[in-house]
């Protein structure tokens, strides 16, 4: 059992949990994920690590409630425990293994969307701690849905915010803001890292590609075990079938077949919807 040390609601339907998981905390690196199960009977849910503290032995996850399983996770409180918390899984971000001198000559642009903002944080933090320059764009529908802005401001050289309705920062899509930074303000980046909804990552990749800006994306595919056993997370990358859990979760955005990835993500939509209805019925029944 893995005790919840802290819980905060970051925005409607988005909750942060700091969880006691000393072994995971010691091994975790930016870009990796964990598999979480709320309780016996719970689904195994992959969540990208949002922060880790080896000394305290804690790992932070940020969950958006989209179905029964994520609701179950978010309904737990401080002092209660998650049944399972396994990881760190997947490959760390590529920059973790790059020579530091080379890295310090580079400039990173992170494009974060919605709940995908959380896993950008440990990456930007790692780069900042290692003296590497990075800017961060956070995109959200509206001001109330923005998360991690204070944390990100501390680790990014520049933080830019884009909201669809203009309630904070730039009014419009993150891709339009990218365009403005690169074309109008003349900013130069060596690498773009996009984490967020699949559709956002697709369009960020297309935008970055028009500037020949190499782009890494972090896929949130469906998974069961997260260790390479089931193949539910198959993704076409450069014409080859790879497993998101062991080959990823980060891939070269140029090579990812996003349309297939989005289609595969919707595999269980019908079942998930009816499960959610059942779950709600149960709640009201009490």
């Amino acid at each position: 059992m893995f005790e919840i040390l802290e819980k905060r609601i970051l925005a409607e339907g988005i909750c942060l949990m700091r969880v006691a998981a000393p072994r995971v905390a010691r091994a975790a690196l930016p870009g990796q994920f964990v598999i979480v199960r709320a309780d016996e009977g719970g689904e195994r849910i992959p969540l990208t690590i949002a922060d880790y503290d080896a000394q305290e032995g804690s790992v932070t996850i940020v969950t958006q409630t989209i179905g029964v399983s994520t609701q179950k996770i978010c309904s737990l409180n401080v002092g209660e425990s998650l049944a399972d918390f396994a990881g760190p899984l997947g490959q760390p971000s590529e920059f973790v293994r790059m020579p530091i001198d080379e890295l310090r000559r580079r400039r990173y642009l992170f494009v974060a969307g919605g709940v995908g903002t959380a896993p950008v944080y440990p990456q930007a933090k790692w780069l900042s701690e290692h003296g590497v320059r990075c800017d961060v764009i956070i995109g959200a529908k509206t001001r109330d849905m923005l998360i991690y802005t204070d944390e990100m401001r501390r680790v990014a050289d520049n933080l830019y915010i884009a909201t669809d309705d203009g309630s904070e920062g730039f009014k419009g899509m993150v891709t339009a803001l990218m365009k403005e930074l690169i074309e109008v303000r003349g900013e130069h980046y060596d690498e773009c890292v996009a984490i967020g909804p699949m559709i956002m990552m697709k369009f960020v990749t297309l935008t970055a590609r028009s500037y020949s800006l190499p782009t890494t994306v972090s896929l949130n595919a469906l998974m069961v075990d997260g260790t390479g056993m089931c193949g539910a997370c198959r993704v076409s990358v450069g014409g080859r079938t790879l497993f998101t859990c062991v080959d990823g979760p980060e891939f070269n955005g140029y090579e990812v077949d996003f349309d297939e990835a989005m289609r595969r993500q919707s595999m269980y939509r019908t079942q998930e919807k009816s499960a959610l209805e059942r779950h709600k019925c149960n709640c009201y029944g009490k």
Partner: peptide, 24 residues
């Protein structure tokens, strides 16, 4: 699906019984 995925969902995760399992 791989047989591993199908069987893991049903055996390990208990997906054959939606009353006790959240896994589809």
């Amino acid at each position: 699906f791989s047989a591993n995925e199908f069987l893991t969902r049903v055996n390990l995760m208990g997906a054959y019984d939606p009353a006790t399992s959240d896994t589809p």
